[in-house]
Simulated scan of single mutants.
Amino acid sequence: MTNRYTVHGMRSAFRDWAGEETNFPREVAEAALAHVVGDTAEQAYRRGDALEKRRKLMDAWSSYCETPPKEGQGG
């Protein structure tokens, strides 16, 4: 039996959720996934790690993951 779930699948689910269900900026979601955002000029000036914003995003993801699905949503 093969496992249907992968780490990349979970990362994709997180990114979809962050983009569709929250108001967190795209850059924060991408930073949470350790993705580099922007062109080389933008990267040269972006020095922060948005740690506190990422922490809030991950707390929201944790709450989302811990919430049982609503009736009829499966899960």
Rank of each mutant, 00 (worst) to 15 (best):
L57C: 04
E30P: 05
R54M: 11
D39I: 00
G48S: 14
A60L: 02
A41D: 11
E71F: 03
K56T: 02
E21N: 07
R11S: 14
Y5F: 13
A34N: 15
A50L: 14
D59C: 11
Y45S: 14
N23C: 08
V36H: 11
A18R: 00
G9H: 06
S62I: 02
H35E: 08
R54T: 05
A50P: 01
V37G: 05
F14H: 02
S62R: 07
R4H: 07
E20W: 03
A50M: 12
Y45H: 15
R55S: 11
E52K: 00
L33N: 13
E27K: 08
A60G: 02
Y64T: 01
M1C: 10
P69G: 04
M1F: 04
V36R: 15
E42L: 15
A44C: 04
H35Q: 09
R54K: 10
R11D: 09
F24M: 08
E30V: 06
G9V: 06
L51I: 05
R15W: 01
E27F: 05
E27M: 15
A13D: 15
P68C: 01
A41P: 06
L57F: 00
N3S: 10
A50F: 08
A50I: 06
Y5G: 08
T40E: 13
L33D: 14
P25M: 12
G9C: 10
T22G: 06
A44P: 03
H8Q: 10
S62C: 01
A13S: 12
M1G: 10
R47K: 15
R47F: 10
N3E: 12
M58V: 08
D39H: 03
T67K: 00
R26T: 15
C65R: 09
R15A: 10
